Structure formats: structure tokens, C-alpha cells
Amino acid sequence: MQLLKAKAFFSKVAPKAKKPKTACQLPESEYRFWSPLGCITVRACESGLHTTGLQGDLSDENFAPNPNQGVKLLGSNKVPQVIKKCEIWFRTYFDDPKNMNTVERPDICVFKKSNLAFRELVWKTLADTVGPGEVITYGALADRLKNPGAVRAVGSAMRNNPNGIIVPCHRVVRTSGLGLYHGGTLQSVKVWLLNHEGITKYSK
């Protein structure tokens, strides 16, 4: 019954956001995974991921995670290697984030560019250097990029992160507290992800 309700809830597809520029012009396909957070939609080409995000009209008010829901790729028999890696990554993450050092991160197309724009550099630095169970402030991330005056720009990069969870913008917090997630509409998701990784000092 719970799974049927979840299917009904996540059958509403969120409006497509403006497609971010990627490192390739290859055609992309859409894939969906069941997860403890609901349905995760991934758009990718054979070379790498383009976007990753929670599907449906999700908000703090209706967020209802199910920790007993395993990760499962939906309705796809033949998938590219990057999606197989994505499935392994999600399974490992939702089973036990402490084991993330045992799995390879799926390729992300935009990271393959020879010259990364500032936002892309923010995303890659975050994904490469801030692991599960860790948090970093916007200012500290700007410092890590050797650009201490770019705190607002770092915040903008977090708001426009096209690959949530895999590029862990939920680990970026304010000096004074939790900080926003999806513009402040999904604070419960941010808290859940941090708690899942063992960080329990924040609340929405």
C-alpha cells in the first residue's frame, strides 16, 4: 500500500528546469530510481550524468521518506555503464554512506570540460573534497577555491546544482546554521541527508 501511494505521488513530473550546459552534445535519456527519498530522476548520455534530482511535487510539507525502500532502477533493461555505476552509487549511499570510498562516482559530463566555469569548479571541488559525514560553510568552500570573496557566488552555485546528492550541496551550511536547500523549500530533505550521514546537530 505504501509503495502504491508513493507511485501515485511521484507520478506527477515536475516542470522541466532550464537544461544546464554540459560538456557534450550527445543525446540524453531519462532514468528513474526508487530510493528512500522517493523517485530520483537521472538524465544522462552514454558519457555521463547531466542532471540528477528528486521527482514530483516535493516539499517540506509532504516529504515522507521510507528508509526501508531499497534502491531500484525502474523500467530499463539495457542501460549505459554510467547508469549502472549510478545504481551502485545510490545503493551504497542509502545503505551506508560510510562505505562510499568503496565505490566510484558516476561520471558527470560537465566535469569533463577542459576549462571549468566557476560554478562547475564549485560543484567539482565540493564533490571531490567534502565526503559523507562532513559539512563545509559557504565561506570555507570559497576559501578552498582560493576565492574568499565569492561566498554569494558559491551560494548561487549550490542553488543551481544540477546533480543533487551526488554533488552534495546538502553538506554546505551557513556559519550560523543549516542554510537553505532548493531555495529553502526542501529543508527536511537536507536534514534527512545529513542525519543519514551521521550529522545530527542541524534541524530545519
Rank of each mutant, 00 (worst) to 15 (best):
G184S: 09
V82L: 09
E28P: 01
V154P: 03
N160W: 10
E30M: 02
P106N: 09
E61I: 00
A150E: 06
D60R: 05
V71K: 00
W123Q: 03
K204N: 15
T102L: 13
K112S: 15
K19R: 14
C86P: 00
D143F: 00
I165A: 05
P97D: 06
K19V: 14
V189L: 12
K7H: 08
R105H: 04
D57P: 02
G198M: 10
G75H: 07
A157P: 04
N66Q: 07
L49W: 07
V130Q: 08
R91G: 05
A127D: 01
E87R: 06
E46M: 08
L49R: 05
V172T: 07
P132T: 09
N115C: 06
T52R: 01
N147R: 13
F63P: 09
E28N: 05
K16F: 00
G38T: 04
R43G: 00
K72T: 04
N161Q: 11
V79H: 03
S29T: 01
N101G: 11
K113E: 11
L193V: 02
F111W: 12
I108D: 01
A14R: 10
G139H: 08
C45D: 08
D95G: 07
N160I: 04
L73W: 01
D128S: 09
Y181T: 09
G149I: 11
I136T: 15
E87L: 08
A64P: 00
E30S: 11
C169N: 15
P67V: 10
Q55I: 04
K84L: 11
E87V: 05
L121W: 04
V172Q: 07
C45W: 09
N77P: 02
Q81T: 12
R171C: 01
G198L: 07
G179W: 01
N115I: 08
K72V: 03
C45S: 15
K21V: 14
D107M: 01
G149Y: 08
P65D: 03
L58Y: 04
A64H: 10
E87D: 08
T125Q: 03
K18H: 11
V154M: 05
K204Q: 12
C39E: 12
Q81D: 15
N66D: 14
N160V: 05
E104V: 15
T200Y: 12
S29Q: 11
S203V: 11
H170Y: 14
L180T: 15
R171P: 01
G139I: 02
A6P: 01
N62L: 03
G139K: 11
A23N: 13
H50V: 13
N115R: 11
P67I: 09
K21W: 01
D128R: 01
W192T: 01
V173W: 09
Q69K: 12
L180A: 15
W34D: 09
K16E: 02
K146Y: 06
T185K: 15
L180K: 14
S35V: 05
N66H: 02
D143Q: 06
I165H: 03
G155E: 07
R159G: 05
N115Q: 12
D107N: 07
N163Y: 00
I166F: 09
K78S: 15
A127I: 05
R171Q: 02
G131N: 06
P36I: 04
R171M: 01
A17F: 03
Q69A: 13
K204M: 08
L126P: 07
A8E: 13
G53T: 01
K201R: 12
F63T: 04
S59A: 11
V42C: 07
G38M: 02
P20L: 13
R91L: 06
S11L: 08
L126Q: 07
E87A: 10
